[in-house]
Design a protein around this nucleic acid. Structure first.
Lengths: 196, 196
DNA sequence: AACGTCTCCTAACAACCGTTAGGTAGGGAG
DNA sequence: CTCCCTACCTAACGGTTGTTAGGAGACGTT
């Protein structure tokens, strides 16, 4: 019963753009329909509710973050927490830059979901953040990172990462790869020992 | 003609809470009024429009950021870019933690302002960000920071700072001062040379 | 006692919201 | 040729939105 047709995907695409640009609450069903050159009511041939569109975007983006993080850790092929954290940061930048609209909606609009779905997303976000925190703690334990508050450091790095959609432009000065390199550098150094 | 009475300030206060919790677009005039135990229409004895409430919050918070940054640089009493950047980061954390609701609304809801006001805020945000970028460039020039992209580094640090309202709790594990210390540490180290 | 000012009220407005009902044109399958 | 399915339409619903109009009670000042 879950629609997966081409039109359904177009809806998610234009909705991501509009939700990113104006926010979920300030975007009407008729706004989304206008971007597809159809009537507002016609959307309901493809979608059960406006919230379902948001859910579709948020859920699939959460899955994208999780899957790409899994792959990155696996591809890294090491248990070294420093290398693993680097892989995680790089994967996150890749996911964000490969679809900034969806990433932005995922990060900023999930509070408009119904309570049940909101809780579900919060749990997955917590688990995702725990990957970062856990690796930081490991790195501290083996002496690769300095002694510091792993929770604060994880929030620091993840907030910086989630800020990317706000300024990233596909035709900007830096490619997604270069941004990823910079962010890996910045993140790892923020955890390093004193220099000199 | 600008109202500055006690009731007017209460409106900004409860509106900040609601805008932070649910977003500007998802908060109705009647929601704000209910929090003050009055009728929705009664708000218009104090306020010309809903957008004026948002503007009042955003404008005053922008001024708070600017003023505290000025004071911090002045109080630092040095021209060393490292110390100045540290003072700037510390000041930003202080402003955010002293009123997380307002800070959050300032950072996330200014896009709902009318075009003229939105441009005005964007200019002030750009100028504020330029302080960070400029100090980072200076630090690189004098060899205190490693050679890196100052614009990316400034975005990195500012995004991390602006993420604080999303997780900060006044009764949380860490005091605002401790968080400021951590953030100064993390930010400066992210710009430091290789260790060892 | 009269006055203005402040704060709030009720009632109502046009516009817009998400959503439902019922209908129609087109195209592919039998 | 008929049947069904997909994709869209128009019309309308009950409710909510930001906002205005006009009035009322309480207050300190003159």
């Amino acid at each position: 019963m879950i629609e997966t047709g081409a039109r359904r995907r177009e809806i998610d695409e234009v909705a991501s753009e509009l939700f990113h640009a104006n926010g979920y609450a300030a975007t009407s069903v008729r706004d989304i329909a206008r971007a597809l050159d159809i009537q507002g009511a016609s959307l309901y041939a493809h979608v059960a509710s406006k919230e379902d569109v948001l859910w579709s975007i948020v859920d699939s983006t959460a899955t994208a973050f999780e899957r790409r993080a899994d792959e990155a850790i696996e591809d890294a092929g090491t248990s070294d927490p420093v290398d693993r954290l680097a892989a995680l940061v790089e994967a996150h930048v890749e996911t964000v830059t490969s679809d900034p609209d969806r990433a932005s909606v995922f990060v900023t609009e999930w509070r408009h979901l119904s309570p049940g779905r909101r809780d579900q997303i919060r749990d997955r976000r917590d688990a995702y953040e725990q990957r970062f925190r856990g690796l930081i703690e490991e790195g501290i334990a083996v002496g690769a990172f300095r002694q510091t508050d792993a929770a604060v450091a994880a929030d620091f790095i993840l907030s910086a990462l989630n800020g990317i959609p706000a300024w990233y432009r596909e035709d900007g000065r830096l490619s997604a790869d270069r941004i990823a390199d910079h962010f890996v550098d910045l993140a790892l150094r923020s955890l390093s020992e004193d220099h000199r």
